[in-house]
């Protein structure tokens, strides 16, 4: 981004995703600049300023909690409408994602995995609202979540086998000693590659979806108004696909996290 004034529309769009422009301070008519002024006064050694991605994350955390809370408050055995939808999603998370991969320990990990699923899902869906922003399309967000997953993997394994035992059993036993010199770094790298791939997958999927829609619409600017119907039609199709991707990526993130945590709890499998 060497010459800001000569940036192509594409590069300008990347600036938007970087949240470095002043557009990042506004969303849905809310301005965060006064709040950021106050936050800057706090004695915290790093920047904690609020921007639209942060706001969307708050919103998504709030929404996922309120909706699940609402679903859990329901009386009567037969749910309908929104409660039914939330229960279906929750049932899916509990039985298809958590219980199949974590087994008996599922109950303990349910808030974490379920939180991941609903947090990412609502992030993605809120990101699809026009004038919204998808926090998942910034790698810092996905990387933070992935780091939390990495900690979860480590904690799950260490709880099961002890702190030293976990690191000792990282590589499979029963091999000649010299192989471990090669194998151990590989195992450590594969351990780190798991959250890395999680972070990059979510980030790149969401970013790619938004870029494709943007590129389709940017064709109107590049080639004139006559391509508008075509690019709009494809834009709508991609948008529908993005809704699918929003669900799929939340599902993938949650199920891979639970697979990794499950593999850490039951290393023999």
């Amino acid at each position: 981004m060497a010459h800001p004034e000569s940036l192509s529309p594409m590069a300008q769009m990347f600036e938007e995703f970087d949240l470095t422009t002043e557009h990042a301070q506004h969303i849905f008519g809310i301005n965060f600049e006064p709040l950021n002024h106050v936050l800057k006064q706090l004695p915290i050694p790093f920047d904690i300023s609020v921007n639209k991605a942060v706001f969307i994350m708050w919103l998504s955390a709030f929404l996922s909690f309120m909706l699940i809370f609402y679903a859990g408050r329901g009386r009567g055995l037969v749910a309908s409408g929104l409660r039914n939808a939330m229960e279906a999603l929750f049932q899916f998370v509990k039985f298809d994602i958590v219980d199949t991969n974590l087994g008996h320990e599922g109950q303990k990990w349910l808030p974490f995995i379920g939180g991941l699923f609903f947090f990412i899902l609502f992030n993605n869906l809120l990101g699809l609202i026009p004038a919204g922003f998808s926090p998942g399309s910034n790698i810092n967000v996905t990387a933070s979540l992935a780091i939390l997953v990495l900690f979860a993997i480590l904690i799950a394994g260490m709880k099961k086998q002890g702190v030293i035992g976990y690191w000792l059993h990282l590589a499979p036993g029963g091999l000649p000693k010299w192989i471990y010199i090669i194998l151990y770094p590989i195992e450590v790298i594969s351990l780190l590659a798991k959250p890395f791939s999680l972070a990059v997958r979510l980030f790149a999927n969401l970013l790619a979806g938004h870029i494709v829609i943007f590129a389709l619409l940017a064709m109107i600017i590049l080639f004139g108004i006559y391509v508008a119907p075509l690019s709009l039609a494809f834009g709508v199709i991609m948008y529908a696909f993005e809704i699918f991707v929003a669900f799929i990526q939340a599902y993938i993130f949650a199920i891979l996290s639970s697979v990794y945590i499950g593999a850490s709890i039951h290393p023999e499998h």
């Binding site: 791939s197 990059v200 997958r201 790149a204 999927n205 799929i248 599902y251 993938i252 199920i255 891979l256």
Partner: peptide, 14 residues
């Protein structure tokens, strides 16, 4: 299949 697709897809995403 979805998990496998996610793994294969990750390479394209890199």
């Amino acid at each position: 299949m979805f998990i496998g697709v996610a793994f294969a897809e990750a390479i394209a995403l890199y």
